[in-house]
Design a protein around this nucleic acid. Sequence first.
DNA 1: TCTGGGGTCCTAGGACCC
DNA 2: TCTGGGGTCCTAGGACCC
Length: 430
Amino acid sequence: MMKVEAKQMYCVFHVDVNSAYLSWEAVYRLQQGDSVDLRAISSVVGGNEADRHGIVLAKSIPAKKYGIHTGETLHSARQKCPGLMVVPPRYGLYMQCSEAMVAIMSQYAPLIQRYSIDEAFLHYQFPPGMTPGPEAEAAAVKAATRLKAQIRQELGFTVNVGIGPNKLLAKMASELRKPDQVHTLFLHEMPEKMWPLPVQELFFVGRATARKLRGYNIFTIGQLAATDPKLIHCWLKKPGLLIWQYANGLDHSRVTDEPVPVKSIGNSSTLAFDVTDRATAHQILLSLCETTAMRLRKIRRCAQVVSVTLRSDKLITCHHQRRLEVPTDVTSLIWQEACRLFDDIWQKEPLRHMGMHLSDLCSNDYYQLSLFHQHLEKHHQLDKTIDALRSRFGTRAVFRGCFSHSPIQPLMGGVLQDQEVEYPMMASYL
DNA sequence: TCTGGGGTCCTAGGACCC
DNA sequence: TCTGGGGTCCTAGGACCC
């Protein structure tokens, strides 16, 4: 009997906004009547240096030519490029831009998977009657080119669209050459387009893995693809097998719009000043717990593990966690545990950064039934009331008294601090 | 290199149980 | 306590992504 190989009647698009934060900022400023296009000059979106958040979040292409990298300090970036323009981020605006882009994408296919604020996958079905091959690939390129043009026309920013038989190759394709490009990376194109690239360009090969691979004389993606997977597994364990598959273009994950269940949540912050006393540290933990616990309740979950992270002025990081006897979503109980963890590990060294995380999340249904814990009832009522007030009047509407004459913000952490600001909708600036 | 903040997954090693 | 081996749970830390 003849075995018929099932032909794949779709391909995947990966849409990636070019220099996302910087492009969005540039378009917004042009719309506000600014005469300078940030994309055309050496510029970066960067954090606040006074608060010690001074790193590059996004860079323009001219800035990139000076060797400026995302994540590097603004201090260092300015040394490379003395006239560098630095603008602060507006996360609320970026969320809106992201939403608007996904709305356009959904005109092209019913199935879109958001991957991050500036990246999304699209499941592209080949036109009816078309079999996989050059004709279908050309149709995909045509659709992707239209999508790219529509985003540029209606929203004012450019994207790269990568096209491949799966998510991995679509993503690799979108990275090929920027900006404002459509690239394909089908299996037959791998030897030419992907295998010659340096191994660290492969998704999931970071600095540490690339260094190890170079130690084994593997410098390109093609060399990794050609290596015996047993050897790679021996060297790099499970992640090694994954990158070996990626190097060979193998990826069986599906484009899906089902929300990924949250496994853990947390907040951390580099502090504007070094903390040297226990009371201040505890207050910062409370501030971090407030935001984290609020988010936990919003997704209707309870946490079973609480953890605290400290980073000293010498940039040494330590971490401590503990399992709770009873899962909880109560701010004050989480805070109590965080303070105990802090007291266990703090050696009195000045602290530059503090964080708290909640993991091993479980359903909060159990809580609904467990009101036999009478003493918890008032905590629940308090949290519930505060959540409702903040949701109605804004997150700054209610805060604990201990913050009223304190330099510490009552709700710390979270990058979306200006998410309640409404920005005017994008329109074409062309 | 004066180093942000949100996550995920994996591994090593210790404690404890049978 | 000169001690085998398998399994589970837990914590700490590292690597990766955006």
